[in-house]
Design a protein around this nucleic acid. Structure first.
Lengths: 133, 133
DNA sequence: ATCATATATATGTTAGATACATATATAGAC
DNA sequence: GTCTATATATGTATCTAACATATATATGAT
């Protein structure tokens, strides 16, 4: 009872249930991670947990978003035929990708503002009198 | 350069550009407004501005969401064949709708947390040394 | 050897959501 | 009577999301 269309059960869904889909928010998050250090998809997938994607991550979404960002010119990828393990793409952020982070941050801050308006109105109406503080 | 697919130009779009679509966030916002006082669609449309929908509002989205919420049982509507002006539906929130507000708020708070993680990481990486404070 | 498992990347499908144009109708102003 | 504001509603093409599934390589266990 949360507005999700609880198909069988969310995977890319639960955390962002109502109007906050996680799939696209993944992009700025991955850009930040790549700004810190180039990485391959699988690695990013694990690190995305810290942004709240934990447990609900769709690997397909990760790779699709990486390819999309490559098309946009925000990241570059090089095949890494390493000594061990299967070949993997090493993604590196581009200067355009860095700009995209800043552009995205503006939207994210705006969104925070909107959510804050909601929460404040909510608290005003359903004031939880938990006395202290 | 923000990830939107800038079709011709956003209307339901701009404020929630990257992954934060406004159409569905409209639902909890309208529920809060209806909790304060029953209202009809056009009235809600105007009040939604305070949540950050200002200027970008698609009337279609408003009415579609109201009908959807009625299907879910979150609101009830009664035709108001008033003395003046065209007939209009007066929407009233139901007890189920009130519960939906609480359920939604949980998600919204979670989402705020995720955005906060992003912003904090962003500031850590691109620390704006504006000295003061 | 071969089987399972972990690593790593990628595609397909279907339902649902979005953006935006447009339709319909009433009342009041001029 | 026609223009504008109010008010509600539908149509549609495109985009996105959810989730299942496919492909391939290396490593460790038996």
């Amino acid at each position: 009872m949360c507005g999700c269309h609880d198909r069988s059960h969310h995977r890319g869904g639960e955390p962002g249930c109502p109007g906050f889909k996680m799939e696209k928010f993944m992009q700025p998050c991955m850009l930040l991670l790549l700004y810190e250090k180039p990485a391959h998809g699988y690695e990013l997938m694990e690190k995305l947990a810290e942004f709240g994607f934990g447990g609900y991550l769709d690997p397909g979404a990760v790779y699709r978003n990486l390819r999309k960002m490559e098309e946009e010119g925000w990241v570059r990828s090089d095949w890494e035929t390493g000594e061990s393990g299967p070949a993997r793409r090493l993604y590196t952020i581009t200067p355009e990708g860095e700009e995209a982070i800043h552009a995205w941050t503006v939207h994210i801050i705006n969104q925070m503002g909107r959510l804050k308006v909601f929460i404040e109105k909510y608290e005003g109406l359903f004031r939880k009198k938990e006395d202290g503080k």
